[in-house]
Nucleic acid binder design. Structure first.
Lengths: 224, 224
DNA sequence: CGAGCTTAATCGATCGATTGAATTCGTCAA
DNA sequence: TTGACGAATTCAATCGATCGATTAAGCTCG
C-alpha cells in the first residue's frame, strides 16, 4: 500500500491532476499519460473510470463548478419588489454579491494550486465552451443571473428588461474580466503582485457598479 | 496557375487558414495538415515560410493585431489637463474610445469569418497568452491604456494612480468581457441574435462607464 | 541556367484507446 | 480467525492513427 496516496482514491487523484493539466495546457495539449503520471496512476484508468479523455474533462469541469460556483449562488434571497425595506435589502444584496464573487474568484492566492487551475479552466470554458459542456455551464451560471437580476430589478424598476440585462452583464463583466485577464493586467500595471489590497479592490468594484447602475447613494457630491 | 488562388499568395492563404483553424481548435488542436488543406497548399510550406507551427502562430497573431487593434489606437489625442476645454475634450475622447472599441470588436457580423476568428484568437491570447506572444500583446495594447488613462486623468484629477488604473480596467473589462463571452451571454439571454441594436449597446456602455467613473453629467436626476 | 517555391513521400515521436493478465478488495462459508 | 471466491481495480504492453518536421525531387519564373 502506497503511503503518499492514501489521502485520496485513484479517481479523485486523476481528477485533480486533470484539472491541473487541462488548465496548464488545454484539452488537446494535455495528454492522459501525463495526467496519469501526475496522479501516480496508470493511463488506462482514464478510460476505466471516465470512459476516456473527454469524460475525464467533463467530470473535472463538474467538480470545479460544484466546488467554486455553487457556494456563491447560495446567497440570501431578497424581499420582493415593493415590500418595505426591499430597496435597502437589494442594495445590500448587490454589495454582498459583488463581495462574494470577487472573494471566491480571488480565493486562490497560491495556497492551493488546484484552485488556481480551476479558475483558469473555468474562465477558458466560459469564453470558449466545448460543445459537450455548454449545458453544464448554463446550469451552474443560471442562479447567479437570477439573483443579480432580482437585485437590479428592485434598484432600477424604471428600466426595461433588456436594459437590466445589460446592467447585469456590465457588473459581472468587469469582475470576470479582471479575474480572467489578471495576467495581462499585471503586465500592463508592471507589478506582479497586484492587487495587494483585496478590500480596496472590492470597494472599487462595488462603487463603480452602484454608480454605473445609477444608484444615487453611491454618487459623489456634484461639483459646484 | 490556379485561378481560385490568384487573389492571395500562398503565404497569405496559409496565414488566413491558420487564423481560422487556430481560433476553432486552439494551438494544439489545429494541425498543420488541415491548415495547409484550408489554404490549398502543402503542409511542408509551414516550415518553409514560417519556420514551423509556432512561427506560423506568431505571424498569425501579428497579422491580427496590426489589422484589428492598431487602427483603434489611432484616436485623436486629448489636450493636456488644465488647458481650456480639456474636460470637454476628455469626455468626448472617452466616448469616442468606447464607441470605437465596441465597433471594432463587433465588426464581424458573419460577413467575414476571418474577422470573427481573429477575435476569438485575440481573446484567447489575452486570457492565456503563450509565452512567446506576451511581448507582442503588450506592444499592441499599450497605446490603448495610454489613451484611456489620459482621458480618465482629466476627468477625475482627484483620484490617485491606482484608482485611475482600476477605473480603466473596469471600463475596458465590461466591453472585452461582453465580446469574449458573447456565446454564453446569448445562451443566458436565450436569443442567438443579441444584440440587435448596436447603437443601444454603445449607449449603455458609455453611460455605465461615465457614471461608474463618477462623471456628474451622466448621472440621472436624483430621486425626490 | 539558377534561385525561389512547391510537391509527394517518409521520418520518429506521441497520441488516445484497448487488451488481457495481475492485483486488491469485500464477503461469506468453514 | 481463516481461507477462498467473485467483483472491482490496477497494471504493463501494444494497437492504429496522427502529429510536426524533414528530405529530395520537381516546378516556375526572371
Amino acid at each position: 500500500m502506497n503511503l503518499t496516496v492514501l489521502l485520496h482514491d485513484t479517481r479523485t487523484r486523476l481528477l485533480e491532476s486533470a484539472i491541473l493539466q487541462f488548465a496548464a495546457k488545454g484539452f488537446d495539449g494535455a495528454g492522459i499519460r501525463e495526467i496519469a503520471k501526475g496522479a501516480k496512476a496508470n493511463s488506462a484508468l482514464v478510460t476505466y473510470h471516465f470512459c476516456g479523455k473527454e469524460g475525464l474533462y467533463l467530470e473535472a469541469l463538474k467538480a470545479i463548478f460544484t466546488r467554486k460556483v455553487s457556494p456563491v449562488a447560495a446567497l440570501a434571497s431578497i424581499p420582493p419588489a415593493g415590500s418595505p425595506g426591499a430597496r435597502e435589502a437589494a442594495l445590500q444584496g448587490l454589495q454582498d454579491y459583488i463581495r462574494a464573487f470577487i472573494t471566491e474568484l480571488m480565493s486562490c492566492d497560491g495556497t492551493d494550486p488546484i484552485d488556481e487551475a480551476a479558475m483558469v479552466l473555468m474562465a477558458r470554458e466560459m469564453q470558449a465552451p466545448r460543445k459537450a459542456s455548454a449545458p453544464l455551464l448554463l446550469e451552474h451560471l443560471a442562479p447567479y443571473v437570477t439573483h443579480l437580476t432580482a437585485c437590479l430589478q428592485v434598484l432600477r424598476p424604471d428600466l426595461d428588461e433588456e436594459a437590466l440585462f445589460n446592467m447585469g452583464v456590465s457588473i459581472q463583466g468587469q469582475i470576470i474580466h479582471f479575474r480572467n485577464s489578471l495576467g495581462i493586467i499585471r503586465l500592463l500595471r508592471g507589478s506582479p503582485d497586484y492587487p495587494q489590497d483585496l478590500e480596496k479592490l472590492i470597494q472599487h468594484y462595488t462603487d463603480f457598479s452602484l454608480r454605473g447602475l445609477g444608484v444615487p447613494e453611491a454618487f459623489p457630491q456634484p461639483r459646484p
